[in-house]
Design a protein around this nucleic acid. Structure first.
Lengths: 230, 230
DNA sequence: CATGTACCGTACCGTACGGTACTGTGTCAA
DNA sequence: TTGACACAGTACCGTACGGTACGGTACATG
């Protein structure tokens, strides 16, 4: 599983105190963060998973064994710290490779199943849930771009990855749809359904690996029934 | 549209200071709340929509023109106030009536479309979004039953309403599925897809009435393609 | 009229937290 | 050796907020 793989940047010195550029998408993993800084962000992630955005900056400093002053120098304020953490984590999520050779109905359905399985695994993970919780909270109180960042790296990223696959399937005569958008919507719905919102709302049950496998296969099969050709 | 209809309780005097029983589901609208108390909860709702859970108790008192002491006497603490508000609002949401006479394929699909339309309308409303945001936030920090309440009155309530319809459809030979659960999951996914999570994450675009109508009809048709018989 | 009750308005208290300043320490370079 | 620097650790400040206490008012009941 290539998900959640951490690749360190080639040791960039933490020179400038200014905030990094505003890409929010497509940035490389390190993104100008020193190893020490990434350690700090890792500590923030742990705290977010454990306490869900309710932690204090002092707690971060304690957990990361660094001073509050350093945190403020590096990240500006609490929100900058949060934002950097979310962006850093988002940059670590890797999507599964999609088949580049000629598509068949079988390889397409298999790719969809794999994609669904990987997506569900990410989405139901503690980390993703914590991040989405924080983003949803902050999206409410105006201020803070957390919501937009997660939106970009969540649903939008999924669609961006899916669209070329669907287009390829259509070009190959395997799929049939008017707008890619609708197909994406249906696929997302069949795969995720109410799983994510239920998890965010604190439901105890989380699907295990075999359940995810079942759901993914069913979703892919259903999608092919709705949009497949021939 | 029978949604968001407020029916006042027949003027119950605000006698006891104790918190009401812990039903969280199926309670009648008034639920032992005086008119004045419901006014207060209405003010809380407005604040939640406007500022999303970040408001202070003092702000509630100001908005509702009542004293903080009264708030604490009635609702115990801030969380009790939040909980009462969410439960009160949840008790106001009314689901559309489903056909009770003999089902046909057409009436079934129409009922599904209507259900989907009503559900999407609720879910994309400012109020529902604010409530879900608050619930998601609080579900993170342990403590507080907000998450469970919204879970009960959201996804679970939808399933509870849907299941008998699906069972009836199956009994009538119109639908075919192994577990109602799977059918519910698919229907939810086809209807809601990523609409809710995107709204919660702060996406600007919200589907208007005609878009909702289109989505609902498509979702119902797709559902019938997947689970319909004959 | 006297008493009690329900409530508003507001002052108040304790605390927790965001943010800043200061001190001490290790490192590296001249 | 000395100075500059980056950082940890910590003390500190202002403020905002949850929660409480108290005084004042309207009304109801006897």
């Amino acid at each position: 599983m290539p998900l959640m793989t951490l690749t360190l940047a080639p040791e960039t010195a933490p020179k400038q105190t200014a905030a990094p550029a505003d890409a929010a998408f497509g940035a490389s993993v390190g993104e100008g963060l020193s190893e020490r800084q990434q350690e700090v962000l890792g500590a923030v992630l742990k705290l977010m998973v454990a306490e869900g955005d309710g932690f204090s900056v002092a707690a971060v400093a304690r957990a990361a064994s660094c001073s509050k002053e350093t945190l403020y120098k590096w990240f500006g304020d609490r929100d900058g710290l949060l934002t950097a953490t979310v962006r850093w984590q988002a940059s670590k999520v890797r999507m599964p490779k999609l088949p580049q050779d000629k598509l068949t109905r079988e390889s397409l359905e298999a790719a969809l199943t794999g994609f669904a399985q990987s997506w569900l695994t990410v989405i139901t993970g503690d980390l993703s849930i914590a991040l989405n919780r924080a983003a949803v909270s902050h999206a409410g109180s105006g201020k803070s771009r957390l919501g937009a960042i997660v939106l970009t790296n969540g649903p939008f990223a999924m669609r961006h990855r899916l669209e070329p696959l669907f287009e390829a399937g259509r070009a190959e005569g395997l799929l049939s749809f008017d707008q890619v958008d609708t197909a994406c919507r249906s696929f997302f719905g069949l795969v995720v359904a109410d799983t994510q919102i239920r998890a965010l709302l604190g439901e105890d049950h989380r699907p295990d690996e075999t359940e995810i496998q079942t759901i993914s296969a069913t979703a892919a099969a259903h999608f092919m029934r709705l949009y497949g050709r021939g």
